[in-house]
Simulated scan of single mutants.
Amino acid sequence: MGLFSALELATSHLLASDEHETALVTSGDNFTSPILDRWRFSPHFVMGDAGSAVVLSRRKGFARLKPINAVTLPEYEAMHRGPEPLYPPGATSPGKLDFGNSKDRWLDGPDRDPAGPLQLIAAQDKLVSRTLDEAAITLDDITRVAYANGSRERVHDRAMVPLGLPMSLSTWEQGRTVGHIGASDQIVALEQFLADGSLQPGDHFLMLGVGPGLNIASAVIEIIETPHWADTS
């Protein structure tokens, strides 16, 4: 989710003035902290270390960032925090972070949404529809969908089924080789699919992310031309 927010801020910065020509967005995650077990942190994914960077420009490039939108569902905030207080934050407290336990406690507590994930899915559907409308395309125009890297079940149930698209259009096969690499999931997938020729000029790449808070974001990237560094042989 962090990279979506950075892209949104960078886009606003570029649109604010003709003097703003470029913006560099970077992300880096290293999950070696003793309070986090990368293998058991969540029942839905394992954590991987990664860094990524992307340059946004007002000038023409090999791809165009079309709409980018986000929404926050604060009623789901406690899902990942559990019963602990907002302050001090859990990351500064003794013990290990465990999203699985936090979610289980939330589901068993009084603050859980009786509708379960249905409201989340509905908000995601609305957000994606808005993004596609602003891009003047439909789901039929989407070549690939990059969701947060996770288990096959997670990507299938939370992304591809709600979108009505097959798993073959997801980036799960790529994501399963690196794990959930923090904010870099979607951008690394974009780079690798361009590099191996899976994305071609005219294709549309839908990025979809979800993060604690609870935040959902989506963006469409249109491939304009094959970048010079892509090896499609």
Rank of each mutant, 00 (worst) to 15 (best):
M1S: 14
F4T: 10
E8T: 04
A10I: 03
L15F: 04
A16H: 13
S17M: 13
S17P: 14
T22A: 08
S27L: 00
N30H: 07
P34A: 01
D37F: 01
H44D: 15
M47Q: 15
A50T: 01
S52T: 00
A53K: 09
V54Q: 03
L56F: 01
L56W: 03
G61N: 08
G61D: 12
L65Q: 03
I68Q: 02
T72H: 12
L73T: 04
P74M: 04
E77F: 08
H80C: 09
R81Y: 13
G82F: 04
E84R: 14
P85M: 11
G90A: 12
N101W: 10
D108P: 00
P110L: 00
P110H: 01
R112D: 02
G116M: 03
P117H: 01
I121V: 11
T131M: 02
D133S: 14
A136F: 09
D141Y: 10
S151L: 07
D157Q: 12
R158V: 11
A159N: 09
M167R: 12
M167I: 14
T171G: 07
D185G: 07
Q186K: 15
V188N: 02
A189C: 15
L190A: 02
E191M: 11
Q192F: 10
Q192K: 10
A195Q: 02
P201W: 13
P201H: 08
H204Y: 04
H204F: 05
H204L: 00
F205L: 08
F205I: 10
V210N: 09
G211P: 07
L214A: 03
S218V: 03
V220K: 06
V220C: 04
I223H: 05
E225T: 10
E225K: 08
P227S: 07
W229L: 03
